[in-house]
C-alpha cells in the first residue's frame, strides 16, 4: 500500500485479529496561479481542498476543487489535461517547484494524492518560459515545440511504397536506443524545470532518435542544424548541464542524448 494512504486499525472479534484499512481523508491548502488571459497580470490565490482521498489523482483533486468553485459561482481553474494516463503530454503544472510534482518518472495526471499528507500546502504554477506564454491560469502555449519539429523533426519520406520493413535490419541495441529517445511526450517539463528554461532535452531526444537509425542518416546534419536554430529562435535558454531536465522528465529521458546532440552539432559544423 502507498505510504500514508490508509489508516490501519486492528480490532479483535471472537479472538480473531482483523485488520481494517480505510482511506484517510486529507485537507490541503493550495496556492494556485490564476491569470485570466495572456494580458492579465495574474496572481497566486489560496484555496482550501478538503476531503481529498489519497486514491485520487492530482488532476482529479483539481476536478473536485473546480466542481466546488463552480458551485460557488467562481471560475474554475484552467489546466491542460487529456489522456490522463501519462502519454499524451498535455498535462503540465509545477507542483511545489517541481514539474509534474514530486514523483520520479510520473506525469501530473499519474501523480496520486497518496504522495501528499493531510495539512500539506501545495503551490501550483504554470510551466514558465519565455517561449511558453500563459493562456489562462495553468494553461500555457507550447506550440514552440511544434515549430521546432516542423524544421527538421522528421525523416523525409513520402507516403508510398518504401522497401520492405525487414529489408534493412537494425541492431536491437540501436532500436532500443532510438526508442529510449523516442519516448518523449513533448510535455515541456524539461523546459519548465530547467533553471534556464532550455529546451535541449526535447530537441536532443528527437535528434538522437533519428541520428541513431539508418533511415535518419541522409538528413542527419541538416536536421540538427535546423532544429537547434529553431530552438534558439523560440527564445529558450541555454543548457548549463545541471540535468534538472532529466530529473523532471516523466519519461526519464537521459541527458546523454544532449551530449549526443552536441556531438552531432559539432560534426555538422566541421562538415
Amino acid at each position: 500500500m502507498g505510504r500514508g494512504s490508509f489508516i490501519v486499525d486492528r480490532i479483535e472479534i471472537h479472538d480473531t485479529l482483523f485488520t481494517i484499512h480505510y482511506p484517510q481523508i486529507m485537507n490541503l491548502t493550495l496556492y494556485i496561479w490564476r491569470q485570466r488571459n495572456a494580458k492579465d497580470k495574474g496572481k497566486m490565490v489560496t484555496y482550501m481542498a478538503d476531503d481529498i482521498s489519497p486514491d485520487m489523482s492530482f488532476l482529479e483533486m483539481l476536478d473536485v476543487v473546480n466542481e466546488r468553485l463552480i458551485e460557488d459561482n467562481e471560475d474554475p481553474i484552467a489546466f491542460d489535461h487529456d489522456c490522463r494516463e501519462g502519454i499524451c503530454g498535455t498535462c503540465s503544472l509545477i507542483i511545489n517547484g517541481r514539474a509534474h510534482g514530486p514523483e520520479k518518472g510520473t506525469t501530473t495526471c499519474q501523480l496520486h494524492m497518496r504522495h501528499f499528507k493531510d495539512g500539506d500546502e501545495i503551490y501550483i504554477e504554470p510551466f514558465r518560459s519565455r517561449a511558453f506564454a500563459v493562456i489562462r491560469d495553468l494553461v500555457v502555449d507550447r506550440s514552440a515545440f511544434d515549430r521546432i519539429m516542423q524544421t527538421g523533426g522528421f525523416i523525409t519520406i513520402n507516403t508510398g511504397s518504401p522497401a520492405d520493413a525487414n529489408a534493412l535490419p537494425i541492431p536491437k541495441e540501436d532500436a532500443e536506443y532510438a526508442m529510449d529517445a523516442a519516448q518523449c511526450i513533448g510535455c515541456g517539463a524539461c523546459v519548465a524545470q530547467c533553471k534556464n528554461a532550455s529546451a535541449m532535452l526535447f530537441v536532443a531526444a528527437k535528434v538522437s532518435q533519428f541520428a541513431h537509425l539508418p533511415q535518419g542518416q541522409p538528413e542527419r546534419m541538416k536536421r540538427v542544424r535546423a532544429m537547434v536554430k529553431a530552438m534558439d529562435d523560440e527564445g529558450f535558454g541555454n543548457c548549463t548541464n545541471q540535468y534538472e531536465c532529466e530529473a523532471a522528465c516523466p519519461k526519464e529521458i537521459s541527458v546523454n542524448f544532449i551530449a549526443k546532440m552536441n556531438r552531432e552539432f559539432l560534426v555538422s559544423g566541421l562538415k
Binding site: I157, P162, A163, A165, E176, A178, Q209
Partner: peptide
C-alpha cells in the same frame, strides 16, 4: 509497417 519503419518508428526488434 514499411511506411512507419521508413519514418523512423523504432519498432521492437
Amino acid at each position: 509497417i514499411d511506411q512507419c519503419v521508413a519514418q523512423g518508428v523504432p519498432f521492437a526488434r
